[in-house]
Simulated assay, not measured.
Amino acid sequence: MSGMLKLMAEDEADLDIIGAAVQDALVRVGEISVDRKARRFTAMLNRFRWESAGERGPYERVRAALSFDGVMGVKSKRVRQDIDDALASVLSVTFEADAEPPSGTVRIVLAGGGEIAVAVECLDAVLVDIGPVWPTPRRPDHERG
């Protein structure tokens, strides 16, 4: 499986790269977890492979894991936690430093107005493709009015 991504982020610029890689990823609510003992947030994604998508395809998705360590708390709004199969599309992943860095909040914004806020001691993120890769019929559309 060539071209599998493994990215790490310890600052906002690094996280911007991860954010671009996970844009339009699909995530099921039941595949988001918080391990309070390990203080880790993990989301299993079906990531659109922007890095290999030309204008006309072929287009692919890949199974990937996005995780944050040093988690102090997680809050969400407008996320259907009662339906494990509820599917959401990731619009952006950003970091807002607290008044006293390196702590801050990672904001995962979902299509439809949902948001997950992950409070972290410091930015410590990993995105890793875990396979498999499969074809997808279309490229996500970003028409903005």
Rank of each mutant, 00 (worst) to 15 (best):
Q23T: 12
D14Y: 03
G19E: 04
V29T: 14
D24V: 03
K37Y: 10
V29K: 09
V22S: 11
V34N: 06
A13H: 08
R40D: 09
E10T: 15
S33L: 13
D11W: 00
W50L: 06
R40F: 08
L7A: 04
L26V: 13
A9T: 05
K37M: 12
D11G: 08
G3F: 05
V27D: 02
L26I: 11
D24G: 08
A20S: 11
E31H: 13
W50H: 14
K37Q: 08
R49W: 07
L45Y: 06
R40P: 00
K6F: 06
R40I: 15
A9R: 01
L26W: 05
R49Q: 12
S33G: 14
A25H: 13
A13Q: 12
K6V: 10
R47A: 11
K37C: 02
A25V: 10
S33P: 06
R47P: 14
R28D: 10
A20K: 07
V29H: 12
S33Q: 13
T42Y: 05
V34K: 07
I17G: 00
A43R: 00
M8N: 10
N46Q: 15
E12A: 13
L5Q: 07
L45V: 12
A25L: 12
A38T: 10
V22P: 10
E10Y: 03
D14K: 02
A20H: 09
D16C: 01
I18E: 01
Q23F: 07
E12L: 04
D14Q: 05
I32V: 15
L15E: 03
R47I: 01
Q23M: 10
D14P: 03
L15Q: 04
R47G: 14
K6G: 04
R36W: 02
T42D: 08
D11H: 00
R36E: 15
A21T: 05
A38K: 15
I17K: 06
A21N: 05
A20V: 04
K6Y: 05
G19K: 02
I17M: 06
R47Q: 08
L7R: 08
I18R: 00
R39G: 00
G30V: 12
R49T: 09
L26G: 09
I18T: 02
I18P: 00
G30Q: 13
G19N: 04
I17E: 07
V22G: 13
D14R: 01
W50Q: 04
G3P: 01
F41H: 07
N46C: 11
W50A: 07
R36V: 15
M8A: 09
V27H: 02
R39S: 03
A25K: 11
T42K: 09
D16G: 00
M8S: 09
F48E: 02
A21H: 05
V22H: 04
A43K: 01
I17Y: 02
L5F: 08
E12F: 00
V22E: 06
A43L: 04
M8Y: 08
E12G: 09
D11C: 06
L7C: 02
A21C: 11
R40V: 15
E10I: 09
S33H: 14
A43M: 07
R28S: 12
A25M: 12
D35R: 07
A43G: 10
L45I: 11
I32E: 05
W50Y: 12
F48Y: 10
L5V: 01
F48S: 03
